[in-house]
């Protein structure tokens, strides 16, 4: 089972943000995505998650075409993204943030709410139980009833991960999960990701912190100027001359 991206292109005016991207991400893997700023990584996330539509190309998730689906439908198909700058429902509490993201609720339609109250109550109880599990897993118990807008940057990253988990995803797209997070919390987030991966959830991770990323992922791809330059095991990928030139050359 994979997420398959075939020949995906996306242009903004004259700027070719994605230029025939091909990538195959196994749904149970820890997969890294690196590249210099402007390489098209976040655009690719937006196109995969249905936030933007691709100009051309094909995306399948576990064999099912998803590029025609709306963003909510893709989330419900088991693939959720997080954002580089964490986003949250800032006026809702942490608990409400997580509950709002749980899919397939009978009570999300007025009909179900009024005519199937028993089902709604049962679902609410089940969702509440999962929310408590997620809060405990992410160690957010102390702030569970605070408005999420008041959380620290690292806590917001954890909340984003939690919100993604509520969808019962097969694959989570993480956009710079470690950016602006203190080193202690980075370790914490990495542990959580590894633990969730152990339960069969795949991760596709954009990250600039190469040191942390190479410890986390088993495979990675490198993007530059809207294309995938190389793909493979982290050490091998980082050794390729064109990768060093495009990406690391600018750093060292």
């Amino acid at each position: 089972m994979t997420l398959e991206i075939r020949n995906v292109t996306k242009a903004f005016g004259g700027f070719q943000a994605l230029d025939g991207v091909r990538l195959s991400v196994p749904l149970d893997s820890l997969f890294g995505l690196i590249g210099p700023n402007g390489a098209g990584k976040s655009t690719l996330f937006s196109v995969i998650s249905g936030f933007l539509s691709a100009d051309q190309g094909e995306i399948t998730l576990g064999g099912r075409r998803i590029d025609g689906l709306s963003a909510p439908a893709r989330a419900r198909a088991g693939m959720v993204r997080t954002f580089q700058v964490p986003r949250e429902f800032s006026h809702l509490t942490v608990r409400e943030n997580l509950m709002a993201a749980a899919p397939a609720q009978t009570g999300e339609g007025l009909f179900g709410l009024f005519f199937r109250p028993g089902t709604v109550r049962r679902e609410e109880a089940a969702i509440a139980a999962r929310v408590e599990e997620t809060i405990a897993l992410l160690k957010l118990t102390r702030v569970a009833d605070q408005p999420s807008g008041k959380l620290s940057g690292g806590q917001k990253k954890l909340l984003e991960l939690g919100r993604a988990l509520m969808v019962e995803p097969r694959l989570i797209l993480l956009d710079e999960p470690f950016a602006g997070v203190n080193p202690v919390l980075i370790g914490e987030i990495m542990e959580r990701i590894a633990e969730l991966n152990g339960r069969g959830i795949g991760f596709l991770v954009i990250e600039h912190d190469l040191e942390a990323l190479t410890r986390l992922v088993s495979r990675m791809a490198v993007m530059d100027r809207g294309r995938v330059l190389a793909e493979g095991e982290p050490a091998a990928v980082l050794d390729e001359p064109q990768v060093r030139e495009a990406y690391l050359g600018g750093l060292s």
Partner: peptide, 12 residues
């Protein structure tokens, strides 16, 4: 609160 976030969280 955040329409885009709601969409990617699966809210219809």
């Amino acid at each position: 609160d955040n329409r885009d976030l709601a969409r990617v969280s699966g809210v219809r």
